[in-house]
Nucleic acid binder design. Structure first.
Lengths: 260, 260
DNA sequence: GCAATGCTTTGCATAATATGGAATTAATCG
DNA sequence: CGATTAATTCCATATTATGCAAAGCATTGC
């Protein structure tokens, strides 16, 4: 969420209140009242009243147990509404069942959020019904095909910090990604390979027994604005010259770049 | 988006402002200033200042061409954050080994796929429980603890059809689930019991010699978005007051979405 | 079991600031 | 080019947000 610095226009109280919301959005954990007040340098009573309003609208939930505040269902609904406005998300979503049917694999559509690669559509292989399960799952940056595709096709600057922390996590448990050597060079090599191939793939890294391949949907700057992932069980399906890969690359190319 | 009616607490101006946001969220089109002001019965100048704040934070965009207002990228990010915040797959996966160790049983994480209840994580306990199923296995709806938990905590509509076909199958070979009477009432009674207890269990029904108990991880609406199953050999371990059951229920409650 | 601590919530007087109507600017249409 | 509509800015008024202080409310320690 963008942080509004200048209070030049709008309501000052509303700007302060939205700061609270932005803070909750940027965190990856619930926050206590005092946390919020300290971080935003305001009296706890002030933050408390803002939160009371947000809770009333369901934008924030106040967990009864720990007394902490967290984003609520209305925040989710707001995001879903915002999604419905984006043409490219709609177009790609509509085409996803076709891709799943054609490749007979599960197809995922992910976009980049505060917490990383987030799955927003999930289409199972054989039947055209959309299941809501899996929606919102944040994919790991280094150990999932989806994350790797974002890594290879995202602007370097904002990604660098996240990459560093992920590398740290990987170093602690190298078994997660056996196909990457632990030093930074190994990661760069992996990125380079993804760019050359036009897609990323993992073989049982994120979920044992499953294989996945992912390709980016690019915007006018050649950066990934979304990633489409195919998940299946047959390792042969994600070979560079396999049929599903060709279909996936064609699909992503067709939905890249502003059309019309 | 929930519409907060009572203005009993919080800031009045903030509540009014959030009303504007809720209005934009509820519409499926951009709105002009006068539209908003008319719909919410406030002076245009008032709505304008609210919108100025929202625009500053990127929650709303002001299209230069038509001068209309619409939800912005920050609304999308907020939704993604809310989604990822309760990313049960990653969170639960990470905690599954601990559950297996603590209960000394095999722990399974399942989600609902097109084929039915599908195991996506599998963590063996210390005792060498040899099982024939692996990742991607679809569990039976009526004869497995996992399936029963989904049945009891899933939205009724999409489940009804599947339930009917499963009932048919069961009628042909009643020996599979000796603890359920063959008529639909028997199934409803089983569902009711699962809801009362908060977990389901089977005793050698799916695989002879194995016992299992399963509890749901619930989403905002109180529906199962995943099911955690414990598998073992000792029937005493799945009694309602047994230690592992308490651990399981606590585990699932802890990973469910906090209730308002 | 009682005191003590930390955190959250509420009350209240002050003044900061949100408000609504009118004036100004921008855009649209005959 | 003038007229009409919508969007934005201005300004005096009083509504209402604010910060401090005090009251709940658990949780912790002795």
């Amino acid at each position: 969420m963008a942080d509004g610095a200048g209070k030049s226009q709008g309501l000052t109280s509303l700007n302060h209140a939205l700061g609270v919301l932005a803070y909750l959005s940027a965190r990856d954990q619930p926050a206590s009242l005092s946390d919020i007040a300290r971080a935003l340098d305001m009296p706890p009573s002030k933050a408390h009243r803002y939160l009371a309003s947000f809770v009333q609208f369901g934008l924030v939930v106040h967990t009864d147990r720990s007394g902490e505040y967290d984003l609520g269902p209305a925040a989710l609904e707001l995001g879903l509404s915002a999604m419905a406005r984006h043409d490219f998300i709609n177009e790609t979503s509509d085409a996803l069942p076709g891709l799943a049917r054609e490749t007979n694999m599960t197809a995922l559509l992910s976009i980049w959020g505060n917490q990383g690669a987030t799955v927003i559509r999930w289409e199972k292989g054989t039947s055209p019904t959309v299941t809501s399960f899996g929606l919102g799952t944040a994919m790991p940056l280094l150990t999932s095909a989806t994350g790797r595709a974002f890594l290879a096709y995202a602007p370097a600057a904002p990604m660098a910090q996240l990459k560093a922390s992920e590398v740290d996590r990987l170093r602690k448990s190298p078994a997660l990604a056996p196909d990457i050597s632990r030093d930074p060079d190994g990661i760069e090599a992996m990125i380079e390979q993804v760019r050359m191939q036009g897609f990323s793939s993992v073989d049982g890294a994120f979920i044992p027994g499953l294989v996945a391949a992912a390709a980016p949907i690019l915007d006018w700057q050649g950066e990934a604005q979304a990633v489409v992932t195919l998940v299946g069980t047959d390792p042969a399906a994600i070979a560079p010259d396999a049929g599903p890969i060709g279909t996936l690359l064609q699909f992503c190319a067709g939905h890249s770049v502003p059309r019309r």
